[in-house]
Design a protein around this nucleic acid. Sequence first.
DNA 1: CTGAAAGCGCTTACAG
DNA 2: CTGAAAGCGCTTACAG
Lengths: 331, 331
Amino acid sequence: MQDVADRAGVTKQTVSNVISGRVPVRPETAARVRAAIDALGYTPNLVARSLATGSTRTVGLLVPTVGGAFYAEMVEAVEDVVEEHGYHLLLATTRLDGERARRHLASLTSRSVDALLIAGDRDLMAHLPLLAEARFPVALCAWETAVPDDFPVVTVDYEHAGYLAGRHLRELGHERVAVLESPDHGSRLAGFRRAFAADGLTVPDHAVHRAAEPTVAGGVDAARAAFAADPELTAVFATHDVLALGALDAAKATGRSVPGDLSVIGHDDNPEVRLTRPPLTSVALPMREMARQAVDLLLRAVARSGPVVNSLHLLRPELVVRESTAPPRSA
Amino acid sequence: MQDVADRAGVTKQTVSNVISGRVPVRPETAARVRAAIDALGYTPNLVARSLATGSTRTVGLLVPTVGGAFYAEMVEAVEDVVEEHGYHLLLATTRLDGERARRHLASLTSRSVDALLIAGDRDLMAHLPLLAEARFPVALCAWETAVPDDFPVVTVDYEHAGYLAGRHLRELGHERVAVLESPDHGSRLAGFRRAFAADGLTVPDHAVHRAAEPTVAGGVDAARAAFAADPELTAVFATHDVLALGALDAAKATGRSVPGDLSVIGHDDNPEVRLTRPPLTSVALPMREMARQAVDLLLRAVARSGPVVNSLHLLRPELVVRESTAPPRSA
DNA sequence: CTGAAAGCGCTTACAG
DNA sequence: CTGAAAGCGCTTACAG
């Protein structure tokens, strides 16, 4: 920078002013400075700037994993918003490993980020207190269970998501249904039940089948269990798309046509569910909007260097009707 | 830091020495300093340290996308290695958008990272010269086509991958085969052909079917074209697992049993291919080792603050035989 | 509109 | 082993 200043015949403060544009500089001077910058191939040292301004222009994102359509899309959505604001993305994954999460949280404390967005869930709960004295704003997103109240949270109204699925099946006329549930998806189930309760129907516990693991195979097993428990059921709600994929397989294997004999509805609207046969009806989560609101919340706090406003944003999911749901045969 | 020094009755240089451990400090003094650190909840300012040392302890990773098992795994592998060395991960994605790639590259130039790893391919080629004057080491990985020679490259021996697929089919006795090809997978095809050539056989151009897009649907179409071109073929090599998935679907739709009537072999060994029926034989790429070698290369250069050694690492892929390949009926 | 000064919070030689 | 000084490369008031 000093070199640039020398070559342009000004002081480095003037160079700084030209670059930042915060203080007006006489056009000729500015032009001379710019010429010198180009000639020398000067690029400002961001670290020095950070030290002087106290801002790293980086936001940290902590996610459980980056594998899987859900978090992959979140990472990209966050990157987009962050980039719009001229920020960089520091990424860390927990892999559902508490110790790993703790390490990351601890290392982020040392002011290397201006703000931190944490997506994930229960495995992080235990370590959140670490952040109590963080010097930067923290927000949580995509949190489903046990939503903490000491940080702002931007998440999906999962209960409503379940309700949408239930209402859709009800509107089609289904009465005997089963739920394929992933662990920690209790609010989706609750919403689903609410839709049936609104019509005076109940979804009994023995119609809820928990998948051993959130995989296609897990979905197949859960679906088979559901068929065995009630051979007459006409529809299945999977709290996770991947389980719905399993349900599709299981239906085929047991000679049930979808949606003729059995309607199947998923949750999350992963990209791949458009490719199944038939394409899967699912509940879409507003990932991009979630990322946007969370990052905006954070960066607004950074901008006025105040605390984040502690709020709970509940984004409404949306039903995407495709071809895996239809009225039951009996209707 | 000054506060810590005051409370411990020493100067901040001593505090610095205690923290870094580079200069021996008398035990009692060190203990006093540590007590003061705890009492004050002091955490060092990494930005200031970076300015003083010239190192940000961050490596940048530029990938086309984070969606898709291949790059997702790469991101996690790189994160692991980087973390082992006490570094952070700055992530940027290009989304196959050249302009976006250029922006990222330009912004990374300003010394916010100690090193940069670029995964990807042709869409980045045009912007690589931007990095010529980068003050930090740069390495490329997972590069398949038009490998540049002015940067170190750690990648897979894709030609060998194709060869492994071809040799496997040859060893099973297949002669009439087809290739389902994704764009830019020429070296995989070349290797595949080499395996057949070794036995005096050729894989003619009309047995190579290019998929319009790297999706299951694209694979289905390409496979149908292959069946139409040669109804007698006994095996199919897909240069991309997702195309192999399509081939599986197309086989089922046309009444071909796998591997009885048709052997199918994929490439990349994405996690989901273990779940297909039958489980897919594929060629596994050593992602973690690739990430490790690339990051090691980079961080060694950082450590001795010299240039990276300009080399080409070609990692050997590995054949994973599952149940989608078998000898042809005729054999 | 431009220049001289101080400071961001560390680390790195260099004396004692 | 510990202390006083200079410097990393910027930015931010503050005079001129």
